[in-house]
Every structure is written in structure tokens, then in C-alpha cells.
């Protein structure tokens, strides 16, 4: 086994994280799930409110229902983007016509989100409304989960599709008996990846960071 300093190990986990949408049928062990949930519990929160609550969904029928809601929501939104030509603008740099059409089909059909039906675990992240910072608090918990998933050699995808539109969120809340005082924030599909994934491109850091005020790049030339 390779040995890393704590700093290098931390950066490796951050850099190795991928959005995984294809899973084997191998279940996630209870021990791994304990680690994932403890990582979530240790996240920071405003006023230490700890507004997160989690629902672990393993039941296949329930996962299929959640996948259907997610796929329906994605399909609606991406179809709207397609019919207004905004999607075509977004993919304008993709020259391969077959790949463009495949991407359009995957997005507008909602397939991009239905995969969650096939994940061994759907971890539903709920946020208490009666606190100041629930979107930020729960997002911190989610990132902790994603990093621990990566460290354990598992894969996960942060799926917002079934929660972004209030109509779909209401369906998810009804399906899972989530009380009025809590928001369904996101669902994390977790399992064993079927294959390794390449990293997605990142914007150059000199475009992201300014010095003292907005506009003056902190990094004067492009960094690797």
C-alpha cells in the first residue's frame, strides 16, 4: 500500500472524487456506511445547528420510484433547455454530431438521473428549515460524504434532480414521509463503481482567484 503524508492524502482524496453513475450490484458494507455517516456528522454548520438528517434507502422498489422522479425532473428541464436552443448553444463546441445527439438524448430523456434506481444505496439528505444556513450546512455534510466515499474506494453521485423543482421535491417528501419542517436537499447515490473515470476539466485557477478586490488575478499566469 502506498504511503502518503496527511496533506497529500487529503489532496488525493479530493482530486480522486468523481461523479459515479454506474454501480456494481455489490452492496455497501455497514462498516463503510458508518464511516460515511460519521463523516457527514462531523461537517461544520452555522451556530452548530447540525440541521442535516439522513434517510438510507436500499429498498429496490423505493429506489426505482426515486429514480423515476429524478428522471422526470431532469427530462423536463433539459427538454425545456433543448426546445429553447440553449442546450445546442451549450454544446456548440462539441463537433462530433453523433456525440451531440447522444448527449441531447441522454439529457432530454432524463436518463442522466434515472441511474439512481440502480445504486445500492440512495442517501437522502434533508435539511431543517428553521435554521439560518441549511443549504450551506447540508452541502458541507454532502461534500464530507463524497470525500469519505472516495477514500473508501466507493463511488457516489450528488443528485439534485429530484429535489430542485418544488413539484418533484413534494413527491420525494411524500414518498419518504419527510415532515414539513425539513427540506429534501439532495440524494446521494452510493455504491461500487463499475470502472474508473477520468477527471472532468477544471477552469484554470488564474481565472478563479483575484487579489484584494474582484478583477485583478491572484495568479498572474496560468498554473498547471
Amino acid at each position: 500500500m502506498e504511503e502518503y503524508t496527511l496533506t497529500d492524502a487529503t489532496m488525493k482524496v479530493i482530486q480522486d472524487r468523481r461523479s459515479i453513475r454506474d454501480f456494481t450490484e455489490e452492496p455497501v458494507s455497514d462498516k463503510d456506511l458508518d464511516m460515511i455517516l460519521e463523516a457527514a456528522r462531523q461537517a461544520p454548520s452555522g451556530e452548530n445547528a447540525q440541521p442535516w438528517r439522513f434517510i438510507i434507502v436500499k429498498d429496490e422498489a423505493m429506489r426505482k420510484k426515486m429514480g423515476a422522479i429524478a428522471g422526470g425532473g431532469s427530462g423536463r428541464r433539459f427538454t425545456a433547455e433543448f426546445v429553447t436552443k440553449k442546450m445546442q448553444e451549450r454544446f456548440a463546441t462539441l463537433q462530433d454530431e453523433a456525440k451531440r445527439q447522444a448527449a441531447f438524448q441522454k439529457l432530454t430523456s432524463g436518463q442522466v438521473s434515472t441511474f439512481m434506481a440502480n445504486a445500492p444505496i440512495n442517501l437522502v439528505v434533508c435539511g431543517k428549515k428553521d435554521v439560518w444556513d441549511t443549504p450551506y450546512d447540508t452541502s458541507a455534510a454532502i461534500e464530507n460524504i463524497l470525500l469519505m466515499v472516495t477514500a473508501l474506494g466507493l463511488g457516489a453521485c450528488w443528485v439534485i434532480a429530484p429535489c430542485i423543482d418544488i413539484r418533484d421535491e413534494e413527491r420525494i417528501k411524500a414518498l419518504l414521509d419527510i415532515p414539513e419542517g425539513y427540506k429534501a436537499v439532495s440524494i446521494l447515490s452510493i455504491g461500487h463503481p463499475t470502472r474508473a473515470h477520468k477527471p472532468r476539466p477544471r477552469l484554470p485557477i488564474n481565472e478563479l482567484v483575484f487579489t484584494e478586490k474582484w478583477g485583478d488575478p491572484y495568479y498572474k499566469k496560468e498554473q498547471e
Partner: peptide, 12 residues
């Protein structure tokens, strides 16, 4: 306004 009407709701 531009609305998209879909053929059916995804089955649960």
C-alpha cells in the same frame, strides 16, 4: 410563453 407538454408522467 413557451411550454412543453410531455406525453406521460414517469411511472412510479
Amino acid at each position: 410563453l413557451l411550454l412543453v407538454v410531455f406525453e406521460k408522467r414517469p411511472s412510479l
